[in-house]
Design a protein around this nucleic acid. Structure first.
Ligand SMILES: [Mn+2]
Ligand SMILES: [Mn+2]
Ligand SMILES: [Mn+2]
Ligand SMILES: [Mn+2]
Lengths: 144, 144
DNA sequence: CAAATAATGTAGCACAGGCTACATAACCAA
DNA sequence: TTGGTTATGTAGCCTGTGCTACATTATTTG
């Protein structure tokens, strides 16, 4: 009874991680496109290929999937985000930045904070994010 | 010059995350097998299928890959870890437990800490792990 | 003991996300 | 204007990691 239940709990946790992974690339893509547009640039395949360190083919294939998922629009000149894509991008950006700030606050170097955040951001629950925000604000109070 | 270099940096970060993901399942498998053996049980396909919430087929295919990678030995009755597999399992367990403890320390619930750690553990650098350990020890000092 | 059940394996499929090779289209420069 | 470079797309391949369907081989149990 104890073991069976434990295994079930473990299974749910692993299933959740797999679900997170199946959204990971989409989040990073819309975030990158969002940032390019924010910076007043036209988001192109070439930019994404440089940002992600993959061939243009991988980018095109990914964009095709994300367009089907309703996250972006490739009909015009540059890449455009749909409302849903923009929403996902904004949420991802907030989460990403908070993770970086939190890592910096606990003493991780700028470089490493950015590196680790790129993976960590996709596995953090709202509860943990809130805990990080709390600690971040407490730290800031101490500093002032 | 600024943009090109930035993209290169981003690319290295994403490449690192992809590398982490390609080791993720192996780490979780050897850790699970390690735990079963530690608990005095014989590690079987059935256990893993329950723990990961996948079919026995997925487990068998994964085990075949990991055996080829020299992480485990399926010749006997139960699953056995090689020296390399045991080393990976031990390192993974240390990391996993430290992440859970850290999340608990910053106020995340037991349940959520275990859930988030399952994904987070694979993306934490040694530097960040050290920072977490530092904060954990500082917190403990305060508590006593 | 014989039948049911549990455990393990293989065959073959799907999809994500990498890749190279090849084809265009668009742009730029001599 | 025309030939090289850059940007984008398609075709087709690979690996990892899921799945169902179908054996086969223990292990229980009536
Ligand atoms: Mn990311
Ligand atoms: Mn991950
Ligand atoms: Mn683990
Ligand atoms: Mn894990």
């Amino acid at each position: 009874m104890a073991t069976g239940n434990d295994n079930q709990t473990a299974a749910r946790r692993h299933q959740r991680v797999r679900r997170q992974h199946s959204n990971e690339l989409a989040q990073d893509y819309v975030e990158a496109i969002y940032d390019l547009i924010e910076a007043g640039q036209v988001a192109r395949v070439t930019d994404l290929q440089e940002i992600f360190g993959v061939t243009h083919v991988s980018v095109v294939r990914a964009l095709q999937r994300f367009e089907k998922r309703g996250l972006l629009d490739r009909s015009g000149d540059g890449l455009q985000l749909t409302d849903e894509g923009r929403k996902m991008a904004a949420a991802s950006a907030v989460r990403h930045n908070l993770v970086v700030d939190f890592l910096r606050a606990i003493g991780v170097s700028e470089t490493q904070a950015h590196a680790d955040a790129e993976g960590l951001e996709h596995h953090i629950s709202d509860e943990t994010l809130a805990a990080m925000k709390r600690l971040l604000e407490a730290k800031l109070k101490i500093k002032n």
